[in-house]
Design a protein around this nucleic acid. Structure first.
Lengths: 241, 241
DNA sequence: CGAAGAATTGATTTACATCAATTGCTGTGG
DNA sequence: CCACAGCAATTGATGTAAATCAATTCTTCG
């Protein structure tokens, strides 16, 4: 508990942490330099291209993943062999369950992704000795639950147009939090968007065309989406209140 | 940490805990007798009729609720004034979020309900000093997340018949875990089932009639449902992996 | 260039919603 | 005890959003 830390220089941090955004305002901001150093041997920083598995459903749950750059999709393998997207993870997000014996959902890079993989045993040990860390991990699950319940409401209440607009809004919000007008790079194919929103590829395509026709967005090269007005998009998504 | 407890008699427990099922195999099984005694002044045991609010969305989050008997529905108030059911809680389940400043969802009794209301401050304090309790609470959120993600899959993948069959199956499973043939008391009206499953009252009614016609269930007095074969119902619900 | 895959667009079908009527309970008052 | 609100549930008729089926068009890449 009593980690006497004061005036520790940046240079006392592990090299890779020095310029990391997570150190400034993400998960690692909650860690003392000494703790980062203690964790250091159990962390690997990686970069993967799109379409690679980061964590695989069903295997022994031995690591956490902290997303630094790019988009990761969480997928559930369905009995019929297809996969269903159940969540998206962006920079700053955290993957892994503390109290699950094995991995519940496959995590797969949707774009090029940079991340830190942390040994579960090491971070769990740290959480055992540092309640702040334990709380942070607990709180993260609560955040995921909240998100998942919002998705439930989306699926029961919103029509196709609202779902697509809402997804674009959320991606825009994560990629450029403060802009009213923004250009985003879609991390998902039409099929992936369809899977996530419980719709079909054709419906996604039609709704994107409709949003384009209505002057809310522009699309270039399939994946470059310009959002002209985040507020109007939020209205189209019925995200108000 | 070092709570020296040995050979504590049942009579050392708070009176209300002595015959409580939660003490045997629920949340309170994880607590030492001394801890139960410590919590005792901050707990009230209550019994409410159907249709009462147990926790109210938006108010300051000051208590946890531990369901002992009956069914509680979690509802989200929608902007248009209607309410959407986002979850059901049965005996043994837990309500309340450790790290949320206010209550996220209204919890309302769907049937007569017996429960213990615990001061949040007191249980949080206990969790701070007893990691087992903290873990249990963390784990509970993880369980809720799991359930919520399964609901997402239901809403994206399953049709009306599968949803209704699945709900009956789950209620049957909670009320009588080991039976193949069972009779359940529906804790929800048709409208509530519709809200939970993202369907309409009429569709629920038609699907119940269809399941009856197909010989999977029988219904008396609207709410008494006999399930002839849980296995067949699970098949109808496509719950099989 | 041509093949293969992804996305768009159009035509048709369908599951569920919506609208509408009827039935069946439950409680209240004459 | 019956009459009749008042409400939930059922059942039927019709409408509609999205799925499905079916061509194109656009992209990428060997």
């Amino acid at each position: 508990m009593a980690v006497a830390v004061q005036r520790i220089e940046n240079s006392d941090l592990p090299t890779r942490c020095r310029d990391c955004s997570s150190r400034r305002d993400g998960f690692c901001a909650g860690l003392a330099p000494a703790e980062l150093l203690r964790l250091h041997p159990y962390v690997v920083r990686k970069r993967l291209p799109a379409g690679e598995e980061v964590l695989s459903q069903g295997v022994l749950n031995t690591s956490y993943v902290h997303v630094l750059d790019g988009t990761v999709k969480l997928t559930a393998a369905l009995p019929d062999g297809t996969e269903q997207i159940v969540g998206l993870r962006f920079p700053g997000d955290f993957l892994g369950q503390r109290f699950a014996p094995d991995v519940g959902f496959t995590a797969e890079t949707a774009t090029d992704v940079e991340y830190c993989r942390v040994s579960k045993a090491a971070l769990d040990a740290l959480a055992d000795s540092n309640t702040t860390v334990a709380h942070q991990m607990h709180q993260w699950v609560a955040t995921e639950l909240q998100e998942s319940r919002e998705m439930m409401l989306t699926l029961t209440q919103r029509d196709a147009r609202q779902r697509v607009a809402g997804l674009l809004y959320r991606i825009g919000h994560r990629q450029t939090p403060c802009a009213t007008r923004t250009r985003i790079e879609l991390p998902l194919s039409r099929g992936e968007m369809a899977s996530y929103l419980g719709l079909t590829i054709e419906t996604i395509s039609r709704q994107l065309s409709a949003l384009k026709r209505d002057g809310l967005i522009a699309i270039e090269h399939k994946t470059q989406v310009t959002i002209f007005d985040m507020g109007k998009l939020a209205t189209a998504a019925a995200m108000t209140v």
